[in-house]
Amino acid sequence: MGKMLRFTQGIGFLLMVAGTSLQAAEVMLKQGDIELRADLELAEGKSVEEGVVLMLHGTLAHNRMEIMQNVAELLKDNGYNTLNINLSYALDQRPSQMLDCSIEHQHKHEDAVAELEAWMRWLKEQGASKVALLGHSRGGNQVAWFAAEKGSTLLDKVVMVAPATWDSNKATTDYEERYKKPLATVMTEAQKLVDAGKGNTVMELPGFVYCEKAKATADAVISYYRDDKRKNTPDLLSPIKKPMLIVMGSADAVVADLPSKLEGIKQDNLTIETVEGADHFFLDLYADELVEKTTHFLDW
């Protein structure tokens, strides 16, 4: 990114993006005590007013990982503007790299919904006429969560790429197999702290999400591991009234249960597509097919 631009929430800078001369920029947006980061890409001859695809990456990842960059570039080639956001995970100006497991994890799964809301407000201030949400993996679940519970007058369509599923029994089994400690014990300790008003207490854990021997607040532990059906993307679809697209890879071993969880779900506003041979990350030519299905669905 050759340019970096900073903004404060609630202040619009329409001139920054109204013209077509600015094709790419890193955008910084103040939210509370931290600055959020995103990459804004304008398609040739396009302005923000014509619509933006707001993109969100997966678990502990970043906005410049391969799938996100590939999809953003291909969307741009097809005439779509993108705002590819980098979740903060409660860190100021978090860099575009996999989250460092050694930090004290203070972030929560639902923080992404608040950050999506902040960026949606920012796009409205810039004059965007419409926004499509596109999320990958856990990001697919989080954009669905936003669409189901928050929404926006700008929200036009929702694209979920290999969106996350949730099964409390599987989460319990996987945790104990990987980290050699019952998840129930960890949750009991965390819940006691939260109930005592000490949710910001940092716990020493055998593991947290993908991180071994991690440190995380009790609030973070409860957020990521409590049994909440909203973490299961198919359970979020019913209240969403905007057109939705779910794209799955036939060789996806990460959300292998997604096809079975979608069975029996019939909504007139839901389209389900499968990319044959693609795994969870839609690499190489699979990204082309993913974007082809996405642009056909968006049809701007």
Rank of each mutant, 00 (worst) to 15 (best):
G79A: 06
L154V: 10
K180M: 06
S250F: 12
S250L: 08
A190I: 02
I272S: 00
V52P: 03
G32F: 09
A72D: 01
V254F: 04
W119N: 08
V161L: 15
A43S: 14
S238C: 05
E117C: 03
K76R: 14
E263F: 09
C211R: 01
V255A: 07
L245P: 00
L270V: 07
V71K: 00
T153H: 08
L75T: 00
E49G: 15
T153G: 11
F281A: 09
L116E: 03
T173M: 10
E35F: 15
K108P: 02
A190S: 04
D268E: 15
D284S: 11
A162M: 02
V161Y: 00
F281R: 03
Y80S: 05
D228K: 11
Q97K: 13
L36G: 05
A43D: 09
A218S: 08
M28V: 13
V254H: 02
K124F: 01
K181I: 08
G140K: 00
L290M: 10
I103Q: 12
D235P: 01
D227V: 10
L298I: 08
Y210R: 05
S238R: 10
F281E: 09
F146T: 02
L298W: 00
T271L: 06
K215L: 14
A132Q: 03
H105L: 05
A128E: 01
V71L: 08
A61T: 14
A132P: 00
L91G: 04
F208K: 04
S88H: 01
Y224R: 02
D252G: 12
G207K: 02
K180Q: 14
S238M: 11
K241V: 12
V221T: 03
V202K: 01
T172M: 07
K181H: 14
E212V: 09
N141P: 03
E204D: 13
L29D: 08
H105N: 11
Q191V: 04
N81M: 10
A216T: 03
N169W: 01
E41Y: 12
D195A: 13
K3W: 11
T172E: 13
